[in-house]
Amino acid sequence: MRLSTVILPIKRWHEGGREDWQRAEELGFHTAYTYDHLSWRTFRDGPWFGAVPTLTAAAAATSRLRLGTLVTSPNFRHPVTLAKELITLDDVSNGRITLGIGAGGSGFDATALGQTPWTPRERADRFGEFVPLLDRLLTQDVVSYQGVHYSADEVRNIPGCMQRPRLPFAVAATGPRGMRLAVMHGQAWVTTGDPALYETGTPQESLAAVYGQIGRLTELGHAAGRDVRPMEKIMLTGFTPDRPLESFEAFVDFAGSHAEAGITEIVIHWPVPDTYFHADRKIFERIATEGLAQLGG
């Protein structure tokens, strides 16, 4: 079991931003992710910085901590330009980048460029084209492609990623089409649990849903001829009925039960005072330094 964190890109770099990423490394987190949005939910009318520049700065300010997005989506990204940025970021970080990637949602990102929001089916269609093309762009020196939604014309990406054959993809998906992409292209799979259970479900129902999701991922792997047992299975917390940051004991119980379900990495949010992501800093840091040891991890 690994423990990681999400640091929201809401602080100016020289007013506490740098220190948060460096502290994440000091605390021993496996990976520090950030959200790749143009703005997000209740933070929309406040500070919000770009994911790729933030991760580039974090790469320069740290030396061991893995870094990544959780998640990038096609809502405002194009595979060609994203691939160039990722190759550069992987180089600057000396091979410490993971790309969390998902189909995106219907929030502000979906309309910021002036487009009509895509339907769930359109998002799935675009995601189904986006991921394989990005895979090619990150593994081949020259790529040409003409698809329904995306194209590339003799695109050069030399010298490629530091990580070979490319940086890892952590594919966020709970539906069958997205899970198939995770099976075909992912080194990791990401879940936030079952969103239908967030407000009215119980922790027990949520855990059962995660068991079910991993079961479906396993079945899709068998159908594709891939054993998904070695694949990392990441649980992004904060969107289930559980409250794993309420106490050290609550986290240990949550982590233990989800490890039994097959989750291999738990991601907790860096505390943000006076928001939904408020947490007691002492409890948070104790979880970071002692939480997995309590489980023998």
Results as ranks from 00 to 15, higher is better:
T34R: 06
V71G: 06
F169P: 12
G193I: 07
A250H: 12
V52F: 13
R18A: 15
W13E: 13
L207F: 02
Q187E: 15
L65T: 04
D135S: 13
L167C: 07
T240Q: 14
E260A: 13
D135T: 09
V228S: 02
T98N: 03
P244Y: 14
V190P: 03
P168Q: 06
H269P: 00
L138C: 08
L3Y: 03
P47C: 08
P271H: 10
L133K: 04
L27Q: 11
K11I: 00
Q115L: 10
G297W: 13
A261L: 04
I283A: 10
Q22R: 14
S93R: 02
G147S: 09
F251Y: 15
H258L: 15
L113I: 04
N75Y: 01
K84G: 05
Q115K: 09
G238V: 06
F169N: 09
N157K: 00
E219C: 00
A152Q: 07
D90G: 06
P230T: 08
F49N: 05
M1N: 09
S106A: 15
I266A: 08
S73D: 03
R44D: 15
G28D: 01
I234C: 07
P273T: 00
L220F: 12
T116H: 01
E19R: 13
I101S: 10
H278A: 15
F277V: 06
V252W: 11
G17M: 05
N75S: 15
F76V: 05
W189A: 14
E260R: 14
V210I: 14
G297K: 13
P159T: 03
A250T: 11
